[in-house]
């Protein structure tokens, strides 16, 4: 971790001097993460690649403003998240699901959910589960989605998330908690999991 960051520091310094090779190394080191953050935020590969491009363009143009005392990857993630959010707002086609509608029938639907443990079906269910979870993530509101993408998919710490989203630690905690709660309600209440489970049974 530390070594990686040290490598970053030198590269950042060189990139600040305008050395394209250094910047390219920074791109290579971070592009997969950035692409995946954008992908999970936006939900499709084309948009994700566009957003990744924009992220690195912005980073390249503003690298002189980057404060070397902070972590480069955090700075980059922040740009990626903001770029993705901007793009999301532009693409108005993306639906958001009102949580109130979901809450009402959430419990009943959840009862039908099969247990995935032990039997061969569980593997299938888990595979299905990935897609269901990811599509459910897309229905979350902006803040919750951002929090869960960074925490549950990218595995970042609360502190890092608070720096990326420029919010307090308390806000991050509550967004993650509420985001997960909403996610579960979408999955159970939206009948997504139980429908698939029913097919399997």
């Amino acid at each position: 971790m530390n070594n990686v960051e040290n490598g970053h520091e030198l590269l950042v310094k060189l990139a600040k001097k305008g050395k394209m090779e250094a910047f390219e190394s920074l791109v290579r080191l971070n592009e997969t993460k950035i692409y995946n953050i954008c992908l999970r935020m936006l939900g499709n590969k084309d948009d994700a690649l566009d957003a990744s491009q924009d992220t690195f363009i912005k980073a390249y143009k503003n690298i002189s403003k980057f404060d070397e005392r902070s972590k480069f990857s955090t700075w980059l993630y922040r740009i990626a998240v903001n770029t993705s959010l901007d793009m999301l707002r532009k693409n108005k086609s993306i639906n958001t699901v009102s949580m109130d509608d979901v809450k009402e029938n959430s419990l009943g639907a959840y009862e039908k959910m099969p247990s995935p443990e032990g039997n061969p079906e569980s593997i299938t269910l888990e595979n299905e589960g990935k897609a269901e979870v990811l599509s459910a993530m897309e229905k979350l509101s902006e803040e919750y989605k951002t929090a869960l993408v960074l925490r549950d998919l990218q595995g970042l710490s609360y502190i890092e998330i608070s720096r990326i989203t420029d919010t307090s630690l308390g806000t991050v905690k509550s967004r993650i908690a509420r985001g997960r709660r909403n996610l579960r309600e979408i999955l159970t209440g939206g009948n997504v999991m139980s429908l698939k489970g029913g097919d399997l049974n």
Partner: peptide
């Protein structure tokens, strides 16, 4: 459910960059 969610989340790996993704990014930056 949270336990299940956690295992599902852990099973979701980062997807690789699309083909020529790096080149596309770099040419845009250049």
């Amino acid at each position: 459910d949270y336990e299940k969610l956690k295992t599902i989340f852990e099973s979701i790996d980062d997807e690789p960059l699309p083909e020529n993704g790096h080149e596309k990014i770099m040419s845009a930056v250049r």
